Amino acid sequence: MFIWHNGALVKKEEASISPFDHGFLYGVGLFETFRVYNGHCFLLDDHLARLNAGLEVLEIKKRINRPEAVRAVKELIEANGFMDAYIRLNISAGAGEIGLRSEPYSEPEMIVFSKPLPRAGSLQEKSGKIVSLNRNTPEGQQRLKSHHYLNNLLAYREMRDAPGAEGIFLTKDGHVAEGIVSNIFWVSEGALFTPSLETGILNGITRQFVIELARKAGLDVREGLYSVDELLASEEVFFTNSIQEIVACPQIGDNKLPGKAGRLAQWLHNRYAACREIYYSRNELGTEGFS
């Protein structure tokens, strides 16, 4: 198995970075995960826009454009022998002296990882469970998709008694936030609800795509601060992320939900599936009414 490291294919057993890398020492690094469908990097432009904005915040002197990313992914998946893949594009700050620094990072490490995925299929289900650990607040003004993942890891360990389910974070004030590896949506009285970025959640690329799909279909999409009771009183619930796509939720705790029988989850998944091998950005979406 190969990885792509700073412009070259490297066997994973031979890859290395410095122990003085500030991504290792202090978590100064960002990553994006996305799917490749039959060689196409779905929503790549949106992922790169988020990544590049984060790199600017962290003052890492690196910007990645679509041709560079496509070339890296193409070389990687061809070397590894698969066309449907999980991709993690990782930028680490690079080596420096021990101790915090205020200067920008000018020699970052770029690593692209891949692993094969089966061809995408029908709408899947995953139960949900409210975790007791609160969602931590972002380190800065907004949550970056960074190496700071301990909050997610500890919540994931809390889910050991519910394998295959998604843990749902609440904020310290008790508002619904997001899943451990997903954003969350629900339907109530004809409107689509999802927690606001004010809760400190990651603005997921699939989250943004689903909101755009729904709004262009004429649906009422509401972002705000919502309680667990409002979530549990909903008509259907689903999770979103870039690898699992749209995942219907049949149950949260003891509360039963329609799961993949949910009408909106089915429609959104079908629209999503029609876009997988075509679009680089949600901005390419046209209008199609929900019916």
Rank of each mutant, 00 (worst) to 15 (best):
F185G: 05
F169K: 00
N152Y: 01
G174L: 06
G167E: 06
L170A: 03
S182L: 03
G167P: 13
E189F: 05
R157V: 01
F185H: 05
E166T: 02
R157W: 07
F169S: 03
G174K: 00
N152S: 13
T171C: 12
H147G: 03
A155M: 03
A155K: 02
M159R: 00
H147S: 10
G179M: 04
E158L: 01
K172H: 14
P163K: 07
K172L: 13
Y149V: 11
F169Y: 12
Y156L: 12
Y156E: 14
H148V: 02
H147L: 15
K145M: 07
D161V: 02
L150M: 14
G179R: 02
K145I: 11
R160A: 15
S182D: 12
A155R: 06
S146T: 15
L154D: 02
H147Y: 15
I168V: 05
L170C: 08
E158C: 05
G179N: 04
K172R: 13
D173M: 10
K172E: 15
E158T: 02
E189A: 13
G167H: 07
Y149L: 15
N151R: 05
W186A: 08
V181C: 08
F185Q: 05
T171Y: 07
K172T: 15
E178H: 00
R160P: 00
N152H: 04
I180C: 11
G164D: 09
E158K: 01
R160L: 11
E166M: 12
E166D: 13
G179C: 04
S188Y: 07
E178M: 03
L153W: 15
H175I: 01
P163C: 09
G179Y: 07
L150N: 07
I180G: 08
R160K: 14
G164H: 03
L153E: 14
E178A: 07
L150S: 11
D173P: 02
P163G: 08
H175Y: 14
A177N: 01
A162H: 14
P163S: 13
A177E: 01
R160Y: 06
R157A: 03
H147K: 03
M159T: 09
I180Q: 02
V181T: 15
V176E: 10
T171G: 04
E189G: 11
R160V: 15
S146R: 05
P163L: 14
P163T: 10
V187L: 12
P163A: 12
S146P: 11
S182A: 14
H147Q: 08
G164L: 06
E158N: 02
L170Y: 01
S182K: 00
K172V: 13
R160Q: 14
H175C: 03
I184L: 09
Y156N: 06
